[in-house]
Design a protein around this nucleic acid. Structure first.
Lengths: 224, 224
DNA sequence: CGCATAGTTCGTTCATCATCGAAGCATTCC
DNA sequence: GGAATGCTTCGATGATGAACGAACTATGCG
């Protein structure tokens, strides 16, 4: 008999299809209401409510009440990382689709991971930023380089404001198997991409689709 | 309703206490027989056998038959990484032990992760090897530096032999939250540490305990 | 206040699956 | 060959927990 962290408890929370769907939906980064999550999971409202309270009790979710709406969100980056890790295993041992569908291809190129960009585009971006020494990679940690403040100020992102969450974090990309940029900076960049309409969120999916013009703009700013 | 990788299937495999215990035991890196795993999980042999066939079917384990023994092991580093990720979440949302026990402390310092060393010692070792440019860190990947061959040859480790598995890999440490060294080199170093009797495995635990002399030798070779 | 919307709680039903004893198969040892 | 060991399969039992309808609470709107 073993002891230690109760991984069965956490895993069994993710192990129910309805809850797994909810968590997958929340990987999109936006907090959702109980009714929206019930729809995502394909269960009735009472059932969803029961699942949500279990996820809350397990510490996997946070709750923000606003009037009669209750917005549920992932509890943090560590939880998001765990979901990505499980997703990676599921994808690799999974049904081995002979031919990945178009949506899969789009997902691989660019998608939302919790609150920041993931996929090939995101990995390339981080590589380039490190090359240019705008960001410095130290072990698995990422720090701002000397030129970071001016570099990001030029595109309207303020890296000086330091909230409790770290500005930079590495997040392992399950499709590319290398890191992309998370943290408040990663989130700010995703905001920028969507605000400038360089790309749009695919409906009912984590995929992010760049427009031709948007891709050029993105590459000019982040991959030049 | 969502589709995509069936994360619920994978998570529910880990979500049963008996199976979780088995997987935790296998994180020790050595393949174990069905009877040993039954003991670890605290269930009867038939029950264990049933669980093992489920884990096999789910692609989480590999099986090596040797005579009348059947050795089960983790299917690969990706699976090990997933278990570590779940362990990390479980530990952080977990029962918040007021005072971590002595075994926890030992685990934090040094433990076995699948087939290589993890914990503070392992993270420090990788940091130092990168500092000395014996290893080069590129993104999340780690490569051998120019001096690597001679450096490791001096302590009896051959890094030239290249099997299918990568020589170097970064593996995220759940206690330190930074990378340590995995891959065949990581495994070889752990072998070395145990072969030289610098440290011994704690019984029934992933903890690795260095002797005073062993710690000095380790520090001289890897942290100097 | 009265009605509508959002959500939780309760109680019941039903299915799944973990569990174990007994029996069966395979391998090795004598 | 026969006995012992290691493991799997089968069948029956039992407990857990997912599901939903109905009733209840809370917030917002007119």
């Amino acid at each position: 008999m073993r002891e230690g962290p109760d991984i069965a408890r956490i895993a069994s929370l993710v192990g129910d299809p309805a809850r797994a769907n909810m968590l997958s939906a929340l990987m999109g980064g936006t907090a959702l209401t109980a009714s929206e999550l019930a729809l995502e999971a394909g269960v009735s409202l009472p059932t969803a409510s029961s699942h949500l309270s279990k996820l809350m009790e397990g510490g996997l979710l946070t709750l923000a009440s606003q009037g009669r709406h209750r917005y549920y969100g992932l509890a943090g980056p560590q939880v998001a990382g765990m979901i990505e890790a499980i997703t990676g295993v599921a994808a690799s041992v999974g049904p081995q689709r002979v031919r990945p569908g178009p949506r899969d291809a789009a997902m691989r190129v660019a998608r939302v991971c919790y609150d920041h960009l993931a996929g090939e585009q995101a990995v390339a971006m981080l590589d380039r930023l490190v090359d240019k020494k705008v960001l410095l990679r130290e072990n698995k940690e990422i720090r701002l380089g000397p030129s970071a403040a001016s570099h990001f100020a030029a595109i309207g992102i303020d890296v000086a404001a330091k909230p409790r969450r770290p500005v930079c974090r590495a997040c392992l990309d399950w499709s590319v198997r290398r890191s992309h940029l998370a943290g408040t900076l990663g989130a700010a960049i995703l905001d920028k991409i969507l605000a400038e309409k360089w790309a749009r969120r695919e409906k009912d999916s984590r995929a992010v689709v760049f427009s031709p013009v948007g891709r050029q703009a993105f590459e000019k700013v982040f991959l030049a």
